[in-house]
Design a binder for these strands. Sequence first.
DNA 1: GAGTGGTCTAGACCACCCT
DNA 2: GGGTGGTCTAGACCACTCC
Lengths: 257, 257
Amino acid sequence: MATEKTASPKGMTSSSSSLHESVRAEISKRIENGFYKPGDAIASTAQMSEELGVSAITVKRAVRDLQSAGVLESVPGKGTFVKEKRRFIRELDVWMSSMDNARRLGFEPRMELVSITKERIADPTLALFGPPDNVYLCVRKIIYADGQPIMYDAAYVPTSVPDEIVDEFGEHFIVTALNRHDVAVKDMSLVIDAAPASSGAQKIFAIPNTYPMLRRLYHISTETPGIDVFGVVESPFDRLACSINLSKEAISRMEKK
Amino acid sequence: MATEKTASPKGMTSSSSSLHESVRAEISKRIENGFYKPGDAIASTAQMSEELGVSAITVKRAVRDLQSAGVLESVPGKGTFVKEKRRFIRELDVWMSSMDNARRLGFEPRMELVSITKERIADPTLALFGPPDNVYLCVRKIIYADGQPIMYDAAYVPTSVPDEIVDEFGEHFIVTALNRHDVAVKDMSLVIDAAPASSGAQKIFAIPNTYPMLRRLYHISTETPGIDVFGVVESPFDRLACSINLSKEAISRMEKK
DNA sequence: GAGTGGTCTAGACCACCCT
DNA sequence: GGGTGGTCTAGACCACTCC
């Protein structure tokens, strides 16, 4: 079958080797051109299949890859839409909470407590910080900016932390809540990486497949013996970036070497 | 067709809704169990298709998702293999070059100059730093750790930089080369995010589809007027992470607020 | 009911690798 | 030649939404 074999079906630039790549490029081009604007629905699979002269499955393949790339979003029964691209930048150097950070950038932040449970640290990547193998209070929360979920935070705090402080975890960031009760933060280690979404994050952010999230692993140590906090923050990579400024002082350390 | 409809074909845990997710989970389970070890070839599509009682396409779908997740790697004509998981951690706080950083962590680093061309800054994300719209020298290089490519660096340096310094870009990091010629670095801004691989990075790292890379955008400003460097480093997210330590001094700034 | 995307299948062709 | 993965197709069913 497949009798006619046109090199480049219906006016697509056949720059790529495979057909689904060409289709993907065509859709991307239309978005860049402004033919499809953010929020718009693109042509349906059936339409585009006929229009470009390729099979419906090939169109679906291209669309799925663009979903993964954070460009498109499909709603079953409705259509496939061009995602709004607005990205939140978390400034790590200014050292303020994400909430303050958001406000400064003109976002309307909101925090939602998901659960407080007693758990051991499950995430093997947190082993990087060498946390004691205890049972912790695991505080999970979602941070929104302008209604969009941008972070999913799982913090492991020692069970020895008094209830007055725990009660504030729903409204405040961990560090803020600790500070308000005179538990001074001594030091904070961060590891930034990307990894497939946890099951919790998959539900919250509606991640289509095992797609990587931008992740911040943290270890907060305090002046109070026995109070160390470990945690993971996951964010969709198209909605968050981190910024840092390394000042002259830090650089001078290098020059001395 | 598809007459028999077993809920959970051939002893897979049907924890997921869709079939390809179950297949994916099954493969992941076998890797966790140690049934498939790093470097091993997994069962071929045809074998697994029969073994699990699902169509070959569904197996391929599951394998493709695991490729994207950085778990599997397929070599056409040979088979599909479990990737070795060894990750390089770039310490940003210590403020040393990636080469020194690598040696300290027991990696054997190597740098390979790809090209030095005259270009304007193409990457729109670098606009974040507000670079002047000039023609720059674009220095592209690959950094390897133990033979594995872990970074793809594209640096834009002003054309006014003397040739003696440019000649050293092939062997040294930008900052190191500048320092060696008394161009002192004043300040460095970093943005860490994840984004689909550039075309160059796709080739170097053999990225299957438009899969996101961990990215570091940088802006280096120097004491010498007119010498500012902008750049992008891309890394496969399963091969690199960044670490930072925020010391007590940085935190004290917050407490004062 | 008509249209949408999501899933699954069977079958085919190709390029590649190994023996 | 026989195996592998990669691609493409046609056709089907489902759940969903909107009219």
